[in-house]
Design a protein around this nucleic acid. Structure first.
Lengths: 414, 414
DNA sequence: CAGTATTTTTTTGAGGCTCGAAAAAAAGCC
DNA sequence: GGCTTTTTTTCGAGCCTCAAAAAAATACTG
């Protein structure tokens, strides 16, 4: 269970620490790395010499006019873009997108495709995913052997081992072990994770000063999803990707949710719920998918006049507020990022949301809770997948340990 | 932030690992320790020789008739009871209890006292706590200098640094930094933690086969509290002790809760709420404290005939069920321990609870969720405090590192 | 009861790792 | 060109863990 630290683990961990310091800082000098890691200069010198020799890091001599300072100039260390590559696959409603990313994090190729995910049979859906990946891997500009990891992100519930999609709103199919399928087909280690979790990972890399130890990313789209980072770690359920914020109960026995149950937060705040409410359709009506353009038009109408549209957004805000309040009762308030098409209508949602939060246990300091909005979720999800894959390469391939292989799946560092 | 591993940390961590293996296993031989920690026999031999020489461990030669086996008999290693002592303080409604516990975990002295916590002024409440601790420390049988830690547990919200009580239902007073007060008075490092979290810690030591990586301890008493262990770690909020399960919103705008808000789970499932409902008192009525005997009588009545009493327990079950369902939507189902006087009436609560859970996102496998009951919370809380204090001594005093002192507060290992 | 087998524990030497101090390198400053 | 300053490398010392061998302690066997 709890295992002692072997002597050889030491070097492994410190190698990983150096790589991670370089990835975070961009082009740190050896001295800076020594400062952030707390290791001695000699150790950093030895480790970075190894890493450079192995082609993982490079000395970015052209560090340019590094502020005319006295003394020997610092030599920046950078990730060698050619050390490896990773591939991201993002599958969302009617949309499939793939990107190839070099070891330094730059996109070097991408491809997107529209699909009818809601009606595709199992084989076809899997086939499309495999085909688009295969096309990218066959790109003559790409050295296939350098592709070290495939990270897939999907809207829906995944298992906690990052292997399979268990359930998803974008397809009636269930239990598709995408990670295993990709691994078997291409011989490249793969993972499959929840889209909102990937959003959270990406936010952490994008704006670490705001999103670091504790924060929440909420997807306001067809459904309501959540990615949660607590104490610097991505929070997942014990069996599944967890964080099914959208399916916390807002009103027991209330409106019909896409999941088939009643009274979920999503049944009041998902696109279909806002639409249903604005159009005066019964709360018992089966959820339908609304296009982004329609939602934008609805928001415009709600801004224009105080009618049922505005009331629909108010009710969505109330549901989100009570949900967040219950969540805050458990974890204390934290910064929130609202992502997705309805985040663009957050001005309509916010007043009722804040009012509801203020009436809950978590809302004692509701006015100090800060919200950010980001209408476009796709780039975030891809970025999260990329960082997830790259940190895997950093830790498990370039700083391998004895039990690397067994641990690989269970890691959870955001 | 993320800090590299120094060479001297290695020995420190492995020392801690050995101590923890002995605490967990009781009287393991060196060979067993080598097996569980994964370290080599020589390393274990060297470390345990040190620990014995320092008086932290002892060879319990009298390991008795250790199953007639061939070969050199194993020598059991045990914690030396005299290596240190810790003191636990448990403060709950109208009740203060202190115990002195030796390094091996045995209670060597205790004292209990009735207080009127609800009406005591600040100075008096603090004074009583200090006085009872002082009396125990002045016991001539006790070597004061061996007392290495004081762990206090309290019903209410504490801060995440384990220093202060922020709010509590047992007193109108707020923000009492008990840990600092005790430290300053006695010069012994102290912590102050939430009672339900301590219950969870204790359950983990008592029955690790059932309560290990993921489980929930719920206190059903005057109020509703929760201790949550996820991935083997005690879950706390980011600022406070968190896990305010009792104050998740069950029905927006519903029954009046002791916290002053409306619709909390506690406002339907706390002792006062069950009483209010059974007696036909308005949901808007101010909460009153009900004695344990009255609650037991109420439960007896509810079992006897299908009247308002039974209905009150049914509604409590429903509130708990929806709350648990929302919680399970976030963290996936886990074993639950119901603790406290109303846990003795769990037979009345369970049917409605299971029914409600089944109607939530977390309830897909509601029938497989298992509940345990334990009517007496006090021994659990004390045990948790003791284990918390002892593991601190294990890790920070007997396996000290450079930054031991700064880390001390922030630790969170259950 | 002595010798052998078996298992646990200790000892010993080798190899690695990190650290501090000193040396070397590479610039600006005067 | 020499001096100062800062960064990086080199080197020897000190620990730590490990594997293998040795020692210790008991049961079995004839």
């Amino acid at each position: 269970m709890s295992v002692g630290i072997r002597h050889d683990d030491l070097r492994r961990r410190n190698r990983a620490m150096v790589i991670s310091a370089v990835r975070r800082a961009g082009q740190p000098s050896r001295t800076e790395i020594a400062a952030t890691t707390g290791l001695s200069h000699s150790t950093i010198s030895a480790i970075s010499a190894d890493l450079i020799q192995e082609g993982i890091l490079t000395e970015s001599k052209a560090s340019e006019p590094t502020a005319l300072k006295r003394g020997r100039p610092q030599i920046g260390l950078a990730l060698n873009p050619e050390a490896a590559a990773v591939l991201t696959v993002v599958l969302s409603l009617n949309f499939l997108s793939v990107a190839v990313i070099d070891y330094a994090g730059q996109v070097i190729a991408e491809e997107q495709r529209r699909l009818d995910t809601l009606v595709m049979p199992r084989d076809e859906l899997i086939g499309e995913c495999l085909a688009i990946v295969r096309r990218r891997l066959q790109d003559p500009d790409l050295d296939v052997s350098s592709v070290a990891r495939i990270a897939m992100g999907i809207q829906g519930i995944t298992d906690s081992h990052s292997r399979a999609m268990l359930w998803s709103p974008i397809t009636p199919l269930t239990d598709i072990p995408f990670a295993d399928i990709l691994e078997r087909e291409f011989g490249i280690p793969a993972t499959m994770e929840n889209d909102c979790n990937m959003m959270a990972v990406a936010l952490r890399w994008r704006a670490p000063e705001r999103y670091r130890d504790n924060f929440i990313a909420i997807l306001l789209s067809h459904g309501i999803g959540m990615g949660l980072v607590l104490k610097g770690e991505l929070f997942t359920g014990t069996h599944s990707s967890g964080g099914e914020f959208g399916h916390m109960i807002h009103r027991p026995g209330g409106a019909l949710c896409r999941c088939g149950r009643r009274g979920c937060v999503e049944a009041y705040a998902g696109n279909y719920a806002i639409w249903r409410s604005a159009m005066g359709i019964s709360e018992d009506a089966a959820p339908i998918d609304i296009g982004d353009a329609d939602m934008r038009a609805l928001a415009a109408k709600a801004r224009q006049e105080d009618g049922p549209e505005r009331e629909a957004y108010r009710r969505a805000g109330e549901a989100l507020g009570f949900g967040l309040g219950s969540l805050f009762a458990l974890i204390d308030p934290a910064p929130v990022a609202m992502v997705g098409v309805s985040a663009a209508a957050f001005d309509l949602i916010e007043p009722a949301l804040r009012e509801a939060i203020a009436r809950t246990a978590g809302g004692q300091h509701s006015s100090s809770i800060s919200f950010d909005t980001e209408p476009n979720e796709l780039p975030l999800i891809r970025e999260g997948c990329a960082m997830r894959a790259l940190t895997f390469v950093d830790q498990e391939i370039f700083a391998p340990g004895v039990q690397a292989r067994t641990d690989a799946a269970g890691k959870n560092v955001a």
